[in-house]
C-alpha cells in the first residue's frame, strides 16, 4: 500500500482498519465521510495545531495609568469649579465655604481626633452590620430563589422592603431599642438584607437554564445544586446585590446616626454631621459629607472593584467593557 504512486491519494490507515489484510487495490480517497486522520498521533498533532490556531494569544496586563489619572483629573476639575463658584462671592462665605476652608476644618477636626474617631466608629458598625446582613440574607435568598412557593409568598414583601427607605425604621427602632447600638444595627439590617436578597434572587433568575440541566444530568442533589451550581452561577448578580447592600447599609447607618444622637450611641460620621448642623458650622458639615463620600468611594475602589473585576475577567465577561 505505501507503494501507491499517486500523491493526491492518501495511504489507508494501517493501524485502525479492520481489514488490513485485504489486498484490494482500490484507491481510498479521504473525505469528510470517512476517517480523515491516520491514527492517534496524527490526530493529536492535528488537534494541537488547530487548538493553537483557534485559541487567543494571552495578552499581558499592564498598569493602565488612565485608570488612575482620569479620576484624579475629574476630581481636580470639580474642586476648581467649586473654588471658582465660591470666589464669585454670590453667597456668604459661612454658608458656602470654599475647598480650602473645608480642608482647614478637616485639619482641625483631625487634630481633635474627631475624624479618626467618627470614621472608625461608623466604619466598624457599617462592616459588622454588613457582614451580619450577608450571613442572614444569603441563605434566605437562596431558599427564596429555589423554593417557588416561598418566593411567591415572600417575594413581593422583600421587594417592598427594598423600596421602603430604611430611615423610616429609625423612629420605630428608637422606641424599641432606645438610643443604643441596637437601633443603629436594626436600621442597617433593614436596609441591607432586602437588597442583598433581591440581588441574589435576580442573579439566580439570570442563570442560563442549561446550567441546571447539566447539574441534573451530573447527578447533583438539591443541596449540591444550590452550592455547586446555582450560587457560583449567580455570583455576578449576587455581587451586585452585595454592592447595593453595602450602599444601603452605609446610607442607613448615616441616617440612623444623624437622627439618633446621644445615649450609648458612639460618635460616628453621622453624629459629626449633626453636630456641625447644630453649631451651624458649614465647614464641619461639608467635611463630614466629604468623609462619608470618601469612605464609600474607598470601599468601592479597594474592596468591590477588584473582586468584581477578577470575577468578570475569570469568566471572560470583561472583553469590550469600559471598566
Amino acid at each position: 500500500m505505501p507503494s501507491n504512486p499517486t500523491p493526491v491519494v492518501e495511504e489507508k490507515p494501517v493501524a485502525e482498519s479492520v481489514e488490513t489484510g485485504s489486498a484490494e487495490p482500490r484507491e481510498h480517497v479521504h473525505a469528510a465521510l470517512t476517517r480523515t486522520s491516520t491514527g492517534n498521533e496524527d490526530l493529536r498533532e492535528l488537534e494541537s495545531g488547530l487548538d493553537s490556531l483557534q485559541s487567543d494569544t494571552v495578552r499581558k496586563h499592564r498598569i493602565d495609568w488612565t485608570r488612575i489619572l482620569l479620576p484624579i483629573a475629574a476630581l481636580v476639575v470639580l474642586v476648581l469649579i467649586w473654588q471658582f463658584y465660591v470666589s464669585l462671592g454670590l453667597k456668604r462665605r459661612d454658608q458656602v465655604p470654599g475647598p480650602l476652608d473645608v480642608l482647614n476644618q478637616m485639619g482641625v477636626l483631625w487634630g481633635e481626633g474627631k475624624v479618626q474617631e467618627s470614621v472608625w466608629t461608623s466604619l466598624q458598625r457599617g462592616i459588622v452590620g454588613f457582614v451580619i446582613s450577608v450571613a442572614i440574607a444569603t441563605p434566605v435568598g437562596l431558599l427564596l430563589a429555589q423554593v417557588a412557593p416561598l418566593r411567591r409568598a415572600f417575594g413581593p414583601l422583600i421587594s417592598g422592603l427594598q423600596v421602603l427607605p430604611s430611615v423610616a425604621w429609625v423612629p420605630a427602632a428608637i422606641i424599641w431599642f432606645g438610643l443604643t447600638d441596637a437601633t443603629v444595627y436594626f436600621v442597617v439590617f433593614m436596609g441591607a438584607i432586602p437588597s442583598i436578597i433581591n440581588g441574589l434572587i435576580s442573579g439566580v433568575d439570570q442563570i442560563p437554564p442549561q446550567y441546571r440541566r447539566v447539574g441534573t444530568v451530573l447527578g447533583a442533589s438539591r443541596l449540591q445544586m444550590a452550592l455547586q451550581v446555582i450560587l457560583p452561577a449567580a455570583l455576578p448578580g449576587y455581587l451586585g446585590g452585595l454592592k447595593q447592600g453595602w450602599a444601603f447599609s452605609w446610607r442607613s447607618l448615616m441616617a440612623a446616626e444623624i437622627i439618633a444622637v446621644g445615649g450609648t450611641i458612639g460618635f460616628g460620621l453621622g453624629s459629626l454631621l449633626d453636630q456641625g448642623r447644630q453649631l451651624s458650622d458649614m465647614a464641619v458639615v461639608m467635611a463630614a459629607i466629604l468623609l462619608i463620600l470618601a469612605v464609600g468611594i474607598l470601599i468601592e475602589l479597594l474592596v468591590f472593584g477588584p473582586i468584581e473585576k477578577r470575577l468578570l475577567r475569570r469568566r471572560g465577561l470583561l472583553a469590550g467593557s469600559t471598566r
Partner: peptide, 15 residues
Amino acid sequence: TEEHRTDAGLAGQLT
C-alpha cells in the same frame, strides 16, 4: 460497515 469508514465512494452512496 467498516468499509464505509475508509471508502468515500461507498459512504457517499449510502449518504
